[in-house]
Design a protein around this nucleic acid. Structure first.
Lengths: 114, 114
DNA sequence: TGTAGATTCAACCCGACGGTTAATTAGCTA
DNA sequence: TAGCTAATTAACCGTCGGGTTGAATCTACA
């Protein structure tokens, strides 16, 4: 619960129910009951999931009469994208290595250095 | 344990120690002891973290004499990047809105954009 | 052969997580 | 005011996660 923000976001995304909630909210605001409807679990469980998403900064909840409207805040996802981008070069290299390998198959000479 | 692959990857990334291990492995292969050295926790705990990372597909472990060399496999990070990209439009819109706002503030000024 | 080192396995502790049901708060409306 | 609905809070349960210590396994090497 006292986790750093990055861990909080990754932790919040590590659950299929919460990711489904985010996908739903990507189409627009919704109340708790609306969000809970598609799931076979209680509305209280959904409320807990929303608490996790809110603490991670992924949603904001505003009071509207007796309803709580939930809205997606994609800002932390931008942070996640930036974090993952640190490694983009690596899987790009992996692609390059595959290219090289396929290229080597066609050529005949190659030198290896340690 | 029986979590879907996406949840397994996000869950593996939801820990600062494991992210630090990945950052270290981004610079090249390492043994378990080498990976454990910077951390104030036991090597057994690191071994558990490596198990989580391996189950998530983020690292591969190869046996080399009595050592276990760990190598980063960035493939699942590509999956994460693709997942996050689904939401890129949303924070881009948010950026656009901010841009509009800042633009309105300055109205006329010099622009030096990247 | 025996011993030292690298790593994992096993058992345990404690707190967090995902879920439940029951009770409570908050706000609309008759 | 009472009563209905939306949502959260509280208490509880079983499991998992991160950590520990101690023992087991595997390998190199004197």
């Amino acid at each position: 619960m006292t986790a750093d923000p990055v861990s909080a976001v990754f932790g919040a995304l590590a659950d299929p129910t919460r990711r489904a909630i985010l996908a739903r909210l990507a189409t627009g605001e919704a109340t708790v009951n609306e969000l809970a409807a598609p799931f076979p679990i209680s509305v209280q469980a959904i409320s807990k999931h929303l608490g996790v998403l809110e603490r991670a900064g992924l949603i904001v909840r505003t009071r509207d009469a007796q309803w709580r409207r939930c809205r997606l805040d994609p800002t932390p996802l931008r942070t996640v994208a930036e974090w993952v981008d640190q490694y983009r070069r690596l899987w790009a290299e992996r692609y390059d290595a595959l290219d090289d390998y396929l290229h080597d198959l066609k050529e005949t000479s190659h030198d290896r250095d340690p």
